[in-house]
Design a protein around this nucleic acid. Sequence first.
DNA 1: AAAAAGAACGAACGATCGTGCTATTTTCTG
DNA 2: CAGAAAATAGCACGATCGTTCGTTCTTTTT
Lengths: 209, 209
Amino acid sequence: MSTTAPSTGKRAATRELILEHAYELARREGLEGLSIGALAQDVGMSKSGVFAHFGSREDLQLAVLEAGQLRFLQRVKWPALKLPRGLPRVRAIVANWVEWGYEYRSGCVLLTAASEYDGREGVLHDTVTRQQAGWREEMCRAIGHAVENGELGTDTDPSQLAFEIYALMLALHHDAGLFGFDEARRHTLVAFERLIASYSPEPGRRTAP
Amino acid sequence: MSTTAPSTGKRAATRELILEHAYELARREGLEGLSIGALAQDVGMSKSGVFAHFGSREDLQLAVLEAGQLRFLQRVKWPALKLPRGLPRVRAIVANWVEWGYEYRSGCVLLTAASEYDGREGVLHDTVTRQQAGWREEMCRAIGHAVENGELGTDTDPSQLAFEIYALMLALHHDAGLFGFDEARRHTLVAFERLIASYSPEPGRRTAP
DNA sequence: AAAAAGAACGAACGATCGTGCTATTTTCTG
DNA sequence: CAGAAAATAGCACGATCGTTCGTTCTTTTT
């Protein structure tokens, strides 16, 4: 007998399969629009068969949320860690983030969840808030390194710049969904360069002698 | 007999009452989470009584969407029209917009709808897209006036600046919902001033002699 | 091969969904 | 005040929701 379920096995494998389908469904319909019946039909199982892998719908939603964060981190954060601390890493994060926005242009689970649960209370709200706060914190740290390196002005407020970068990513998703990705990306990248220039220690354009 | 229903009358009055409740419900649960049963209970009527005022759920959602836009325009746009064209009007729009974000901090129907319907198709998607495109267009025009007045640099791309301003408002709602309104507003206003300064025809801080 | 354990199924539950149809009540009109 | 017209209630429908339960099929262990 196994005291704890092994992470590789039939159970874990189908659970992962279900989560994959659930993630795609939640991307389109939101976490609140994710229904077990539709998920079961999508994955080719019975409702109860799917249900048995998660004690409740809420636990399923939570699992999707964590799967989403994992994907985000391994597509956006981890590749950026290979670059040196400071501005290069910040730039890499933003570049990866934009590409992430391209792959998941029709709905990002994490962003949708943030707007779905920001006004309520419960485990889902708490998880979403913790995720968002954690990622914002990491952005602040990455920006802080750039300040320490002298790549950004010493008067830079990391949380302020993190807010402004996050704003661009929200607008990227918003505009990509409504007006098309290409123009949204153009606007985003232009705005990001303006942002970096405006926080640069050397004046970006008009330099005083 | 009346050939067409007068805009003031019992029918129109209760329809307005229902819409008021529906708007508040949709603000919390989203347009997709708005159910006729819950709405009827909230307004103190029977399901069919409520239903009779709108031929279908979709028509109800559409009415809420238009009610939301009306409120937005009369709280954000119309007061700003009293100010002269150009930068003052742009500033007024942003200021009103931020205060609008305060009043409706736990969920804005229009923004929620934008993320709910950006990936689908149908009347609701079309309406949301039209609304958003229209408002963006108005922002571009307001910014264009400021450029013509010489209050913003001649190389200013209105659609680019409109994108960046919209980004701040999205981030305001996002952060206000998750982390509290006050800090979100602080970040938003600071970012907006940086934005205006960076688009200013005279260099904001370091001026070349 | 027999027995034990695990995984998925199928049916059913109470509830709620949007939507019709028919009364009944309310309001307006002559 | 009576009768027409409008507004609302009541009820029922098929569908779907999340969830539970007992059964069946598959896999592993003895």
